[in-house]
């Protein structure tokens, strides 16, 4: 479990260069350049419809970029064959917006499927791991429930347990706190930090929840809807203090631009 020691932070984990995303002729974002370091909690933020989730889909192999490259360490993700891509993805876990649990399977089966598929663990061991992961997200005892029998927040937490099943090196979160009450959202934030610290996981979070952005992010990019590219990047507090871009400032202060400078410290 000592990944942290082997590969220290500040080594690049994912590098995105000149990425342009489009649906048909409609360009969503162009010329994106950024680096996600190991152990980062990297925030992708921006207004609704700016292409945050689409960017995530490019990073996890669901949508091919129109132009540009995505590197995982030194492998160009979209230039290797699909087998290699799925080997890379096996080292990452994804929490989808709605949880995306497989509705025909119980929570235990959901969490167990990646383990069944990619490890040689015995049935008993898998069961132990599944219970542990569910307990970590606060769902101990819910093994035999079907996703439809749970509330939205619980589905999301179960989705996280599934994403963590294979102890991934990278965790992707798509709007983790959307639809959660403030306390659950806070708990999820704490869990994200805990995972990063204890397992050395790199975390990529797509969100527009300000409290989360400031609480957990140590690097970020801001996708702008109007210019269709990144107009601000850096640690969120620093970004707010230093940025000249009006729209980044507005976003990070909920539109109260006037007092932005004094609050940043």
């Amino acid at each position: 479990m000592n990944r942290q020691d082997e590969k220290t932070s500040n080594t690049p984990h994912i590098i995105v260069s000149d990425l342009t995303m489009a649906y048909g002729d409609f360009v969503i974002q162009r010329d994106l350049n950024f680096t996600i370091n190991r152990n980062d909690v990297f925030i992708v933020m921006g207004g609704s419809g700016c292409g945050k989730t689409t960017l995530l889909r490019h990073l996890i192999g669901l949508k091919r970029p129109v132009k540009g490259k995505v590197f995982y360490e030194d492998i160009s993700f979209w230039e290797v064959d699909s087998g290699e891509r799925s080997r890379i993805m096996r080292k990452s876990g994804i929490l989808y917006q709605g949880g995306a649990l497989w509705s025909s399977m119980t929570l235990a089966e959901n969490v167990a499927l990646p383990l069944d598929e990619y490890t040689d663990l015995s049935r008993g061991d898998i069961k132990e791991i599944v219970s542990l992961k569910l307990a970590m997200v606060g769902l101990a005892g819910y093994e035999e429930f079907y996703p439809a029998e749970l509330s939205g927040g619980m589905q999301k937490r179960a989705g996280l347990a599934r994403a963590m099943a294979l102890d991934p090196e990278i965790l992707f979160f798509d709007e983790p706190s959307a639809g959660l009450d403030p306390i659950s959202a806070k708990r999820l934030d704490d869990l994200i930090l805990e995972l990063r610290d204890s397992l050395g996981t790199t975390v990529v979070v797509v969100t527009h929840e300000l409290p989360s952005i400031f609480a957990i992010g140590n690097n970020s990019i801001f996708l702008d809807t109007e210019t269709r590219t990144i107009i601000g990047q850096g640690e969120p507090h620093m970004l707010l203090a230093q940025t000249d871009a009006l729209r980044v400032k507005e976003f990070l202060t909920r539109g109260e631009t006037a007092s932005a400078g004094s609050r940043a410290g």
Partner: peptide, 14 residues
């Protein structure tokens, strides 16, 4: 399953 991103979840799991 497509609507709920369940198919995406399968694909990204390989």
């Amino acid at each position: 399953m497509q609507v709920n991103e369940e198919i995406d979840a399968l694909t990204t799991l390989g």
